[in-house]
Design a protein around this nucleic acid. Structure first.
Lengths: 125, 125
DNA sequence: CTGAATCCCTGCCGATACTG
DNA sequence: CAGTATCGGCAGGGATTCAG
């Protein structure tokens, strides 16, 4: 794979991407990083891991996040199959955002990121 | 935490960062994403997970990677405590790059990223 | 061989304004 | 309420050049 290198005790099947020499969007690692890419993305995911939310609830939870970026992030996560939009009929417009089953599996991913960062020594910089 | 949200079966202690409303470099998730941030970074880590490498071995393994970015990535990973430089005396200059114990623990992190990306449905775009 | 310095171009994100 | 459109500033990264 692009990144297969990992000792993987569990062992995934050998993947051609494990050996690529250039960054490619087809690599699973790149797919995940692309889904989480950009400022605010992981915070939006965290918010949704706590339960489904409306657009304005997300804005309230993350006040410094602009409309533009929030829309962008939700679209990005939806494209990655992590978030589902639930548009309800009537007025005023009501839309609920929720993680898909696949999106909920980002929990362990964020956990892995958290764990590594939590043990990190002070940056040498 | 900035991101603590995760169901964490293992359970980390409650962390103030788990609730921040704005992206902050102090959040463990941000720390890890910063360490892995930028193009080529994960590929460099993959290469080093296979064993220590010299500068030119890395360039050979990743031919499309420019000097500037390679230096940048190595410095970034060193600052994050993931990579150690081993400069040997004599001529010509010989330098070996190797993952630190902490850096080797990026293996499971990349594995988690790989696993999620590998199950991803085709992007809806 | 191992890098650091420079230049330039592109893409990200924040602020503001506007629409269904 | 739930977004999109547009603009400007700044940081990321590729090519090239220079240095220890």
């Amino acid at each position: 794979m692009t990144h297969r290198t990992v000792g993987h005790p569990a062992g995934l099947p050998d993947d051609p991407h494990a050996h690529v020499a250039t960054p490619t969007p087809a690599c699973p690692v790149e797919i995940t990083l692309a889904a989480l890419h950009g400022r605010w993305t992981t915070l939006v995911v965290r918010e949704l891991l706590r339960g489904d939310r409306s657009y304005s609830e997300l804005r309230t939870a993350l006040p410094a996040l602009s409309d533009k970026v929030l829309s962008e992030r939700l679209a990005q996560l939806a494209a990655a199959g992590a978030v589902a939009r639930d548009r309800r009929p009537g007025w005023p417009p009501r839309v609920r955002y929720a993680l898909t089953p696949h999106g909920r599996r980002l929990g362990p991913v964020l956990q892995a990121l958290w764990d590594w960062g939590a043990e990190a020594p002070m940056p040498t910089d």
